[in-house]
Design a binder for these strands. Structure first.
Lengths: 144, 144
DNA sequence: TTTAATTAGGACAAAATTATCTTAATTAAA
DNA sequence: TTTAATTAAGATAATTTTGTCCTAATTAAA
């Protein structure tokens, strides 16, 4: 469904959010340990998230990655997915036709549309705060 | 969503079904032209579909790929997807956790379950015949 | 039986994705 | 100002997916 990079990006964002609530910056090393991902690869993904203004980085000693507390509840899962995997998951044809659409549909176009819309709505209506709270409360987990 | 191999596999199966209704066998070349895919790669995917008993092959002169007409309406999209991409799209965790489930859910487990179930139901309730008929009637298309 | 047409299968190649390593740039604190 | 800690960025490597090519095996028809 999502690329590995995207999975790591989502989990990293959640972990950063949790720590930002407590005014703590986190490093790629801490993050990758917490979400069980390769450190250097995760660092690359963090760079991309910074470029897309989803997370912030502070360089130098005592630096790290953080998210402005006030923004956490307004960051949607869809923004993270879009930043890393692009919009093909929403807009792409299920069978890879380039011009698939109402006027020129692939054989599964209508049936797929329902699923894609459900996914899109879910991602657009899920924010980082709720996900972070589930981890903090021990209801959900970031690894294993 | 699906791998390229799976996209090709679905489209190839639909094209074979259409021709089988008219008692015609088709070759990888015809198929790949009709679904706009690389011929040799498509041939590999056809081999896999044969091994999974989804389509039949007849070797030698006047051979080709076909599907028993009586079986076309009973072949579900889910069987093709399963044969090529496996079951991770149904069973896998959206964030890649190995042990994601009700007792140890990832942060998006519940929200994802809805989407995955919708996809699963769609694939399990769509058969090759209906897809083939939409192509024959010109309502849907296999390429471009 | 020979031939031509065909699928099967293995080896190989290219491209994309995932992952690692090294160095540069930045910054807070000593 | 120097040092240590940190992110940024580029080069490289490994793996997976996608794609190609060649030969073997099979089979219907001549």
């Amino acid at each position: 469904m999502f690329s590995k990079a995207c999975e790591y990006g989502i989990k990293a964002s959640i972990f950063i959010a949790i720590n930002s609530f407590e005014n703590k910056r986190v490093s790629p090393k801490e993050i990758s340990e917490e979400i069980d991902s390769p450190t250097a690869f995760t660092a690359k993904i963090l760079q991309a998230l910074v470029r897309h203004n989803i997370i912030d980085s502070v360089k130098g000693a005592y630096g790290g990655f953080e998210i402005d507390k006030k923004r956490i509840s307004s960051i949607k899962l869809s923004q993270i997915v879009n930043a890393i995997d692009g919009d093909k998951i929403y807009k792409g044809c299920g069978l890879g036709l380039h011009t698939c659409g109402e006027e020129h549909p692939c054989p599964v176009h209508d049936k797929f549309k329902v699923v894609r819309t459900e996914l899109k709505d879910m991602l657009e209506n899920t924010n980082l705060e709720e996900l972070a709270l589930d981890i903090k409360s021990g209801v959900a987990f970031l690894k294993i």
